[in-house]
Amino acid sequence: MNDWQRKSPLDWEKYVNKMVKVAAIEKHEYEGWVLTVDPVSASVVLATFLENEKVSISVVLGHAVQEVEILKEGDDEMKQRLSCIFAPEESKAYSP
């Protein structure tokens, strides 16, 4: 287990809805908006919005994470947008 995997849910929660840069082993780097951090594996789920309205999802596995740097905080609109990405179909029907 690395330091990232040893964090608590309350620590990981601080990264949700933030734009981050994830430094992974073997010199890989990933950037995106944090949708969630899996509390079981500490995997970081990132969303990147592409120009054609599509969303790219990247998952960096917890065991590969070396460091996560917060670049900026998402505003309310971004938070709303992020919360809908994996929303179950029912709640999509009811969201404003």
Binding site: P9, T36, D38, P39, S43, F86, P88
Partner: peptide
């Protein structure tokens, strides 16, 4: 918090 994080992750896997 753990539940919320895990649920979102599981939905992501589903997606």
């Amino acid at each position: 918090v753990r539940a919320t994080l895990r649920e979102r992750y599981l939905r992501g896997l589903g997606a």
